[in-house]
Design a protein around this nucleic acid. Structure first.
Lengths: 203, 203, 203, 203
DNA sequence: GATGAATGAGGCTTCATTCAT
DNA sequence: AATGAATGAAGCCTCATTCAT
């Protein structure tokens, strides 16, 4: 399982450095220093700087997927499952600001650099959302009119944007729980007063 | 209207280049070529490369704000207003892929580089959403339990993440209208089957 | 006599700017601003940046030569003449720090740039010293063993090096008169106690 | 002894290039080529271009100080000491034209750039002169009326200006020994015919 | 003559990557 | 495998000079 001690030290160092400075401002020597290895050593484990970035994702998001899946395995109510996903995502992002920034910033960069990179681990991650929605639709709990492909992006986008309040130095002191409640309320029930919905049709 | 011919040519060129290559991969000479000016000319109008990025935001988002506000002025139903915001945002992002990418990618980078940059024009933009929500709450159309500050981020995040399907080379052929409908349905009514909501309480 | 108003304004501006920033750190636009003309105007009066430097010398040292010669014309004792030269040089350098710096710094630079430039006005200036010495030798006042060509450099070098106490921010508060006295004493009588000279032969 | 092979190669290369082209006209790539290292290597040993200049001084003048002090240690007649200083200075400047030019030209530039730089090694060097003079005054060999602080500048300035005959392409074929004799004669005895001094008082 | 916006060549410096040890 | 000194390509930016007005 453990590929190499140095390998993981470099991944850890890179995650920290990318988060602090961003991919382009990160220096190989920064990562080497953080990982306590020589600059050249990094090239024994990675092809180039960008390869490190990809690996950081693979690693960190892989962990996230594993954790989320484990939690979801113990639950079968699609409503609870969505709640679990939101809470876990927000919790991890708040705790591991490094990862949060790496995802928020670098994922977008890398999507540009390696056009279809997102198909990999990251897609796997947000497809958990559409899987939950489809599950709910099969159980007649989620509306059939909802497009899971659009909804998964909306849900992830909402979580992602919100979790930025912890990475940027904003001081709005929302707790994970408050946000989870709000997000769930919005996504499950919408923001409309029940009575107000009668007097409105989209478009 | 035109402050300076060169100024706006550079802004336009920079928007295009930043979108295509990203801020860090963009070369001043790329922008100059795109804008059909000499490299040095750029420094008559901007202090440095980063200043160009900031200006692109100020300019483009300023336009967006102006357009959105104009549309909203003719409407007073908070539900329609949210719809208008979503449709306009998506329409612009689909049409002006350059701007879309610049916002999606670079805004996040610059948030890191200039810690509190987002307070400027961008905040102004997404505060339109919270304004609409608060308006709806006063009219008893939007639930008072919804926190506008969280909801605005959720709404923008959803739009932003979804609009990436046009910038990344995904081939999901959703139209602006389809997405607008879906987003509105999700945000106004939630994804829950009406009956399902009785059997569920968050957390 | 007056070539042009702009011409002399540029010379004056350049003298000031060269002194403050040095030739290489001086910008044409600095000179233009100082002279209150447009950048392009400078090129109506001078071929290039270096040409301005040369002109500043020609002008300023020309003035100096004129003034010194005028003073010397009224004196025929070679001892007094040397004194007059020293006093005038030091007085001008102390008062006109701009010129002092330009001579001290730029003259040396320009000597490199235009290899034989020093033959012009500057040589004319320090040849006044050798002229005085030769005059004194003819009158049997200055020792015939003194080589005027070496002595002129020694004398000018001494004055030049000393006058740097005013341009660099040293705070040794010597007056022009004190220095003139010392220089004259050294050069006319040497630093040796009269009795000590008997017990010593060079080399 | 050798701190680093590259370090001293760069110093040597820089000394040569600065002398040939002057600090501002010298290109980092010139120095690199001269030192037979890559451009980037220079920045492993120096912070920036100006730092190289400073280092050249520190190094070269340090050597000079060491050599002069060594020679002076074997002598205790202040007259001979001054002679030794002059001869050594001129000898080194004639042989090492690179150093001569660097001192003559760049020292003055750098004095401007780093206002109080001269306090360092260079001051140490010319303070040797005032030390010798003070020593002579204590022994009643040099006149007490001579101000060592002015005299040291006069003496150094004279040597410096004279040594320019070797750096600028002048063709006056003076030998080091001729000049040393002249300088010593001037500074020790003055240029006045002994009898002439009776009929003259300064000012 | 005068202007100053525009030009574009070129330098200093950085840093990903290599390679001799 | 590990090191880190060395490399050198390439970018941001400056600024002397030009030229259309």
């Amino acid at each position: 399982m453990k590929v190499s001690n140095k390998h993981s030290k470099i991944i850890a160092g890179a995650t920290k450095v990318f988060a602090k400075k961003g991919f382009f401002n990160a220096r190989i020597s920064d990562i080497a220093r953080e990982a306590k290895v020589a600059d050249g050593t990094i090239y024994l484990y990675f092809n180039n700087k960008f390869d490190i970035l990809i690996s950081v994702f693979e690693e960190e998001i892989g962990n996230l997927i594993k954790q989320v899946n484990k939690l979801l395995a113990a639950e079968d109510d699609p409503r609870k499952m969505l709640e679990i996903f939101a809470r876990k995502h927000l919790t991890v992002m708040k705790k591991n600001k490094n990862l949060a920034e790496v995802i928020q910033i670098e994922l977008r960069q890398s999507a540009k650099l390696v056009k279809d990179y997102r198909n990999n681990r990251f897609s796997e991650y947000i497809n958990i959302i559409s899987f939950i929605i489809e599950l709910g639709q099969e159980q007649n709990i989620y509306r059939i009119s909802i497009n899971p492909c659009i909804a998964k992006r909306a849900f992830f986008g909402a979580l992602d944007e919100i979790s930025r309040i912890w990475t940027v130095g904003t001081t709005t002191g929302f707790t994970v729980e408050e946000i989870t409640q709000q997000i769930l309320e919005i996504f499950l029930c919408g923001i409309l007063e029940p009575e107000a919905s009668f007097s409105y049709t989209i478009n």
